[in-house]
Design a protein around this nucleic acid. Structure first.
Length: 198
DNA sequence: AACACGATCTACT
DNA sequence: GTAGATCGTGTTG
């Protein structure tokens, strides 16, 4: 199977396009422990300061600074006192936008994922942004990494085209009218079902 | 210095 | 279905 790392130009585009095309791509974390990889099945777009649900909606802060930088970098934030969430920065420098990686299917390094999340079955290991980071060992140390580097990156392992459906975003109280959540409807590893996305 | 809350998840009823 | 965990961050005083 051919493996092609996603380039800077992939990320430096309209955020909704990047989000849709990330479905079916592969997230790789080459940690000192083991190489871990998962096929992405669910993402959400957060687009600029006019998107009320975007962390950058109220301007630049220390936390969201990387979102204002160039495309192709990781934005990892800490939430609810115990979880991390992984985003990829899109668009161009000065425009704050990113795609939240919400769920994936384990492809490599599943035994280490199981160690990080002992209570989860295979389908749930990467099903949710907090679980995904915990199971793949992604923490605040991974904030601001160049996705063209060696530790954290994305690949196209083009097999078959993936179908994509759109729904409202999850877990936010504003901006829910926009269908900016993108899912592979055939996946059994989604964070929530596609219908009834309360 | 103090405070309110969040792009979540788990356990329990 | 819902409450509780748990703390960094941004805002307010």
């Amino acid at each position: 199977m051919r493996k092609r790392r996603l380039s800077r130009s992939f990320y430096a585009r309209d955020t909704l396009t990047v989000a849709e095309e990330l479905i079916g791509k592969v997230l790789v974390h080459a940690s000192p422990e083991a190489k871990m990889a998962g096929r992405i099945v669910e993402v959400e777009a957060y687009v600029g300061q006019d998107d009320p649900a975007c962390h950058a909606a109220r301007g630049r802060t220390q936390r969201n600074a990387v979102m204002f930088g160039p495309a192709g970098y990781s934005y990892v934030y800490f939430i609810y006192g115990m979880y991390y969430c992984l985003n990829v920065v899109t668009e161009h420098e000065g425009f704050a936008a990113a795609v939240l990686i919400r769920a994936a299917e384990p492809l490599e390094g599943e035994s280490l994922m199981q160690e990080y999340s002992p209570k989860l079955k295979r389908d749930k290991l990467l099903a949710g942004p907090g679980r995904l980071c915990r199971s793949m060992g992604i923490t605040r140390e991974h904030n601001g990494l160049d996705l063209l580097g060696t530790a954290l990156y994305f690949e196209d392992r083009a097999a078959d085209p993936t179908q994509v459906v759109r729904t409202p975003r999850i877990g936010i109280r504003v901006g829910t009218r926009r269908n900016w959540r993108f899912c592979d409807p055939e996946s059994s590893a989604l964070s929530r079902p596609i219908r009834n996305t309360t």
